[in-house]
Design a protein around this nucleic acid. Structure first.
Lengths: 342, 342
DNA sequence: ACAGCGGCTGTTAGCGGTAACATAACCCGG
DNA sequence: CCGGGTTATGTTACCGCTAACAGCCGCTGT
């Protein structure tokens, strides 16, 4: 299956074309286009003019091979539809903006094997750095990252051992904190509603921390419900209904993310349930969407923007003087909203 | 600013390393790793073994330069936080999956200049094809795309002249259809609520089609309200409140997207307004989120997955026999939901 | 026995740029 | 008016890989 020019039979332009059109050497053209080295204003103008009229677009493949420099940063995330990651990406892009570096996104769909493949593909383009969500990877993936000889930043989570650097929050601690707040508010029969995905390690860690704090207070989860796939908002409604039918006496619902939490909240409101009097609710992430809900769901922001920023700074080498291997812990703030009794 | 090996001082591996480790020529190693040409099982094994133990990751930069083949497809979209585009991307990835092609995403933030830059950067990696959202680009961007000599597919919208191929819906027609449905349901004092963004061409076209149909029925918009930035759900509430206060007699709210529509719906329900009796509502996109709302907002799906699929098929050359320049119009279906009188 | 062929491996010459090192032209003061 | 330092441009040798072709071997049919 060859790929002959299906469209434009013209050969694509090279430096040589520009050099001939402007009557200087390829090297000089290269210098002009990269703004490097001394070139007289006269020739610079002529070259730029020629490049512009020809419509020359430099070939970064050749450039990267020759200079051994690639201005790409690989960013590996589990999903784009999660609300969370686009915001992390924003933080990354914003920070990378003025460094000449460019993020390239790979999506794993929460599959470790897929992640391994994506990392391999990405590394084969020899990026200047990699930002990878999570600390859990296949052995092969971890080995590749460690071998790559570039800065690696694992983000979102710091409960574990990073390959190189890490920026994130402690999800165990986050779960614990939320549990403590809930207990302090006087709730006692607490249910957990979350994803079933076996590879959502961070949700799992939050739950662990949560149960930990419960048991320290002599409590255990009154009920639990899991889901996978589908519209999170709808699932939130359905799960809430299921839990409340099955365990009518629960007085708190802890959701593993804000979307299902929002669904649960809408359900409770529609049923005329007294929130937070009879039942309290809490989610996780602090997504913007919550601002538009009739009542503000209690949540904890995951420092998404900040995580993006800090990780990009590490890649961009803004922490000069360190040799990598940093671990930056951020501390999410609990936003009590209107769904936990004061 | 050089980039000396901050981390791993070891030279990164090349084909030569694998070739020496396995005692065959670089060419044979290359053949093994690409599964191309005849290699005896014995040597294949030895080579794979060597590559594996060394942890060799091929250098696609060099490969691409030598073979003049790049397995990347550029995908240029305005935003990732729009709900809409992640789904288009899913369609694209799924279709590209088994073609050996890989999507690379660029985000423009609805800025034409940014789009031009992103397209330039993307083209400089010499991708096998480009998928670009929208038909409106700067002249320079359009010229670059036309010159690139690769398949170009402009998606989402077909109301205009594509550079090469296009896959999408007619937003003018979509607006018109919605207006007709609303009028047919007996609403007469209709308001529009939407984005202020000057570069949301598709929302603009929907509004044009909408007003067109209104005026054919002898109607004009009773009110209009615009927003920019912030949480769309919250903005929806606020705008709805503003419109209802200003024009208490409107009987229909047409939102330029589902998120603000959902906000408006939640507001109306919270106010105890009779929906769709006193006021009808409609949005656009058919986002999954709506499934979780207390009442189903009337909307029109934008064929997002299908657009992704079809555009990827064009790039992958699955429409053999055509020379490009296809325009594929998809037809969105109106989902009346529960917010338009029957 | 030998031309012919298919299977397997190696050699050579780039791909389109850039680093590093010439080289040429010009300028200055002593 | 010439040595030495700019400034502006050109030359050469790769970067790591692959296309294209060349070579070698053993086997086949006649």
């Amino acid at each position: 299956m060859t790929t002959p020019p299906r469209f434009d039979p013209r050969r694509t332009l090279t430096l040589r074309d520009v050099s001939e059109a402007s009557g200087v050497s390829e090297m000089t053209v290269s210098r002009v286009l990269r703004n490097r080295g001394d070139v007289s204003d006269a020739t610079r103008e002529r070259v730029l003019e020629a490049a512009r009229t020809l419509g020359y677009v430099p070939n970064k493949i050749a450039g990267a091979l020759a200079s051994q420099r690639v201005n790409l940063v690989g960013v590996i995330i589990p999903s784009l539809s999660n609300m969370v990651f686009p915001e992390v990406l924003t933080g990354i892009s914003d920070t990378l903006e003025d460094t000449g570096l460019q993020p390239v996104v790979g999506v794993t769909n929460y599959s470790p094997e897929r992640e391994e493949t994506v990392i391999y593909e990405m590394l084969s383009w020899r990026p200047s750095g990699m930002i990878v969500a999570g600390l859990e990877h296949t052995d092969a993936a971890r080995a590749m990252l460690a071998q790559a000889g570039i800065p690696i930043v694992e983000i979102m989570d710091i409960d574990g051992t990073p390959v190189d650097s890490a920026v994130g929050i402690s999800h165990r601690r986050a779960g614990r904190q939320m549990a403590e707040a809930i207990i302090a508010a006087g709730y006692r029969r607490i249910a957990f509603l979350g994803t079933m995905m076996p590879y959502d390690h961070r949700a799992k860690k939050r739950l662990e921390g949560f149960e930990d704090a419960l048991s320290k207070a002599g409590l255990t989860l009154a009920d639990r419900e899991f889901y996978s796939g589908g519209s999170a908002l709808l699932k939130g409604r359905e799960m809430t209904e299921a839990v409340l039918k099955r365990s009518p006496d629960v007085d708190f619902l802890y959701f593993s993310n804000d979307m299902i939490g929002a669904g649960g909240l809408l359900y409770c409101l529609a049923q005329g349930i007294d929130v937070p009097g009879k039942i309290g609710l809490a989610g996780f992430n602090g997504v913007e969407l919550l601002d538009g809900l009739p009542r503000r769901l209690a949540t904890m922001d995951a420092c998404r923007l900040e995580i993006g920023r800090r990780s990009a700074e590490i890649i961009a080498g803004k922490h000069e003087g360190t040799i990598g291997g940093e671990v930056i812990e951020l501390f999410p703030t609990l936003q009590p909203g209107d769904t936990i009794r004061r």
